[in-house]
Write a protein that binds this DNA or RNA. Structure first.
Length: 912
DNA sequence: TCACTGCATGGCT
DNA sequence: AAGCCATGCAGTG
């Protein structure tokens, strides 16, 4: 693949009079992808970064490095890679550019998976052969394979790719790129002339820990030959000694497959910190990580080729587009989550042997199953096929893996047939997992140490994992589990942490974690893993949601549909989600004017506001533009103490009623179930097409059974068949049955309370037992209301569980269990109940309404009193100006809109 | 009853 | 929409 310029007889350098050298050395890369062949003298000058100084001194384009002032020749193909263009203008020599880069706090490893090179089938054998060389110490006899499907076609590699700090060896005409390092022409040449098999073995990309860059002296031109014979141009960024960090060794395999005449497109990038990674989404690997965590000065550096004393051999860097071609990102690409994010420190930990060459292969965050007692670690298919021995039998092979401490483990690497595919697993990992004290959410990394070819299994603890989470997702992790980001015991201070985004932020050795440890959301969030919530968490979430219900309010100008399920009136917001605002207390005076009471957060005084105003989450008196006299905190409160107590008591009863209702659902079904579960049961039993909320809805396709959100708990709006009043499907029957149960339970409780109240209230002569079947509490409440606003029944009647309480609703059905929202297919439009209980309910309701009217007519007009009186009847959902208020009623009631003369409810005002 | 194994399922990418 | 893969589960010892 090497070539020389056929147009020139002698040294490519036009200023050189030497004849064509016998053994020409490669210089800079030409635009056709080939390399300028130089004589020894010119090559030395080139490699020493003195070419332009020697031959182009009088040419135009010299500029000074913004950092060190060193003169660099810009616009010259020879020194093209020796210059970094600064975003803010100006240039920097690559030495300075790399120094800035080195200062990046996150010397993550670049992912080898940015190397998208093809591997024609014809080369697989070769590659396997060479991989066998790599895996000489492997416990398995199976052939190691490269990752042919990891590398996309080189032809697809954009010629416009800029050279980034992480670029790969490009033997055989492929640019060799070390982190921030440019390969020497000699290296390339030497590699190119090697035996093909050696090319594979020598294709290692030596990663240079960025820290090393800074400590290296520029000007060292002596190529360093690695163990594998790959000559890495030392430059100032070349590691003087120590670990060679190797990219995916199949790079060269792929390279070899490239057509000779395609050298111009063979430039492959190891990482494209900016654009390339951008294309790969937020969870990209080192490039983006490094850049993400870089100081701005470093971020803005156009890290192109590594410096070779400020001299670069090819000129394509900055003219390339960092974005890989679209076809380079085919289905064979590994998911970013498997890209190794191992740090150099980690690699050092793994290596131990300073002469080892570490090849980060992949990593995987442990799932609950992986970390579980079953001892099976599911391997990403592509990773398994790429980096583990090929297995043809499901039984697989034993695989010897060494952990970071040097302990060797033997896992069974096998697969299961699965959907015409394979599912690769490592069996027997439990001891190792436990030894590493790993849990779900932690990450295991697989690397390979060369030349031994050992598989090394490292790990990285997820940071700041709450114990509950850890314990939840894994079996007993054992005592002494390092948590909160602690990692390998070898040197915890240098191990990395996973931030919230799943990225790794490496701590500075010896320094305390500068980045706040965060919950391992990566386990659940960024990876979109299945949500794993303990029952307790679920319950807590449910409660939280219930509490949040208090804050829900219909969106402005959107009337919710109301559906009653299980005695709960549930508002459905078809188009817009409910909004959250400041809780207020809604009341209605005797004139039917709805008002709401809101408490100032500064003075705690309650102010009366129009019913329909939407309040911001924080409200103070100064916002009271509706009542200027009470727009300051110094203004007296409109309510008397007693009235305020009544108001608050009403609120306190109204608020818990929702929670109570929700809790009732919880109790009645299961802690982890909701009404959707009920519907599920019905569906399972009858197979009747129902608006099952358990089914994924278009609105919330990911909600699961048990989800009690406002959406899931109700049937999809406007979708699915409607339930008839006489519907006998399992859902309806179950709901009715449960409703009856609830009714009986409530009646019993109410009767007990009413009886107790009656004994205390002599003026209330009405026996609570007189009409136990007809909702005596309501009757007594009604008669009590005027004389005793604080009657305990207030609380009870507000209780949503009271089916007879007056509940305004937009639902057209009355006295029925309405599973629909404004049913459109009422084959039997009769509003009458199809059950005796329904009749009772309706009778009681009618009687209660009559009583309420009487009671309200007798009201003195005191809004508070009115409210209290009306509380027993439930909540009026009033509206002004078309703005729905009083939302979030979860009160159970089979009655539907009845505008009571006065009522009170708690609701919220939307955030203004 | 428990652990293990192999497969199936279905959520998710 | 295909494929991956996390997980469940039945079968087996």
């Amino acid at each position: 693949m090497s070539s020389s310029s056929s147009a020139k007889i002698g040294c490519f350098n036009p200023d050189c009079k030497d004849a064509k050298p016998e053994r020409p050395r490669n210089g800079w890369r030409l635009r056709n992808g080939e390399f300028a062949e130089l004589c020894d003298r010119c090559a030395s000058a080139f490699e020493g970064g003195r070419y332009c100084e020697t031959f182009h001194l009088d040419a135009a384009g010299w500029r000074s490095c913004e950092s060190c002032g060193k003169r660099v020749h810009c616009g010259c193909i020879v020194s093209f890679h020796a210059v970094a263009l600064l975003d803010a203008g100006g240039v920097e020599c690559m030495a300075c550019a790399n120094k800035n880069f080195i200062r990046a706090p996150n010397p993550m490893w670049p992912s080898p998976f940015f190397l998208h090179l093809p591997l024609p089938e014809r080369l697989k054998d070769l590659s396997v052969k060479n991989w066998n060389q790599f895996s000489g110490s492997s416990a398995v006899a199976a052939q190691w394979r490269h990752a042919p499907n990891l590398w996309n076609t080189a032809t697809a590699q954009s010629e416009l790719h800029p050279r980034m700090p992480y670029e790969i060896d490009r033997s055989n005409g492929i640019d060799k790129r070390i982190c921030g390092e440019r390969p020497s022409a000699s290296a390339m040449e030497k590699t190119r002339n090697e035996d093909p098999s050696e090319k594979v073995a020598s294709s290692s990309l030596k990663f240079v820990p960025p820290e090393r860059f800074a400590n290296e002296n520029a000007g060292d031109n002596n190529p360093v030959e690695t163990k594998k014979g790959v000559i890495v141009e030392p430059g100032k960024n070349t590691p003087a000694a120590g670990i060679k960090y190797e990219a995916h060794p199949s790079v060269n395999i792929s390279v070899q497959s490239l057509p000779k005449d395609d050298t111009s497109s063979l430039h492959v990038n190891f990482g494209l910190p900016s654009s390339c990674n951008e294309t790969n989404g937020p969870s990209n690997v080192s490039g983006s990580q490094s850049q993400r965590l870089m100081p701005p000065s470093a971020i803005t550096k156009p890290f192109m080729a590594g410096p070779h004393n400020g001299v670069e051999s090819s000129a394509e860097t900055q003219v390339r587009n960092g974005r890989p071609r679209g076809d380079t990102r085919g289905r064979h690409q590994l998911l970013p989550r498997y890209w190794p994010r191992i740090t150099d420190q980690e690699l050092q930990q793994i290596s131990g042997d300073s002469n080892s060459v570490i090849t980060p292969l992949f990593e995987k965050m442990l799932s609950a199953s992986d970390a579980g007692r079953i001892g099976r670690l599911v391997l990403p298919k592509k990773c398994a096929e790429a980096y583990f021995p090929a297995i043809s039998q499901p039984e697989g092979l034993p695989l010897r893996v060494q952990d970071a401490r040097g302990k060797e483990w033997v896992f069974q690497f096998r697969f299961w047939p699965n959907n015409n595919s394979r599912m690769y697993v490592l069996e027997g990992v439990t001891p190792c997992i436990q030894s590493m004290q790993l849990q779900a959410g932690d990450t295991v990394t697989f690397s390979r140490i060369d030349p031994e070819g050992k598989l090394v299994m490292g790990f990285r603890k997820a940071s700041n994992i709450p114990p509950s989470d850890q314990e939840m997702q894994t079996p007993k992790p054992g005592n002494g589990v390092p948590k909160n980001g602690e990692v390998n015991s070898a040197d915890p201070s240098v191990w990395s942490k996973v931030d919230k985004s799943g990225y790794i932020a490496k701590e500075i050795p010896g320094a305390k974690a500068s980045l706040p440890t965060k919950r391992k959301s990566s386990t659940l969030g960024s990876k979109s893993k299945r949500l794993r919530i303990e029952n307790e968490d679920l319950i807590e979430l449910k409660i939280t949601w219930e509490e949040a219900q208090e804050l829900l309010r219909p969106p402005p100008n959107h009337d919710p549909s109301v559906v009653i399920i299980e005695g709960l009136e549930i508002e459905e917001f078809g188009q817009e989600a409910p909004i959250i605002g400041k809780p207020t207390i809604f009341t209605t005076n005797q004139l039917g004017v709805k008002i709401q009471w809101v408490q100032c957060e500064d003075c705690s005084k309650w102010r009366k506001l129009p019913f329909n105003v939407l309040l911001r989450s924080r409200w103070i008196c100064s916002y009271n533009s509706w009542d200027p006299k009470r727009s300051t905190c110094s203004s007296p409160q409109e309510l008397t103490t007693e009235q305020l107590e009544d108001l608050l008591s009403s609120k306190s009863t109204a608020a818990p009623k929702k929670t109570k209702a929700a809790k009732q659902v919880t109790e009645a079904v299961e802690a982890s179930e909701g009404l959707d579960t009920l519907a599920n049961l019905a569906i399972l039993g009858e197979g009747e097409a129902l608006p099952s909320s358990s089914q994924a809805t278009t609105k919330h396709p990911r909600h699961r059974p048990g989800c009690t959100c406002i959406v899931c708990i109700q049937p999809p709006s406007g979708k699915g068949p409607k339930h008839k009043p006489t519907c006998t499907c399992n859902v309806c029957l179950t709901v009715k049955r449960r409703f009856r149960t609830l009714m009986l339970r409530r009646e019993k409780r109410q009767s007990e309370k009413v009886a107790e109240t009656a004994r205390k209230k002599e003026q209330l002569q009405q026996s609570p037992k007189a009409e136990p079947e007809d909702d005596p509490p309501l009757s007594s409440n009604t008669s009590n209301s005027s004389s005793n606003p604080k009657h305990p029944l207030v609380n009870e009647t507000v209780d949503d569980e009271n089916p007879n309480s007056k509940r305004p609703s937009s639902s057209p059905l009355k006295g029925q269990i309405d599973l629909n929202i404004q049913p459109e297919r009422e084959d039997e439009p009769s509003p009458t109940s199809d059950s005796c209980n329904m009749s009772l309910i309706q009778d009681a309701t009618e009687r209660y309404l009559r009583e309420q009217r009487l009671s309200s007519s007798a009201s003195d007009g005191d809004p508070i009193t009115d409210q209290i009186e009306a509380v027993g009847g439930g909540v009026v959902e009033g509206r002004l100006d078309g703005v729905p208020c009083g939302s979030g009623h979860l009160d159970g009631d089979m009655e539907h809109p009845v505008t009571l003369p006065m009522s009170m409810s708690t609701s919220t005002s939307a955030t203004g």
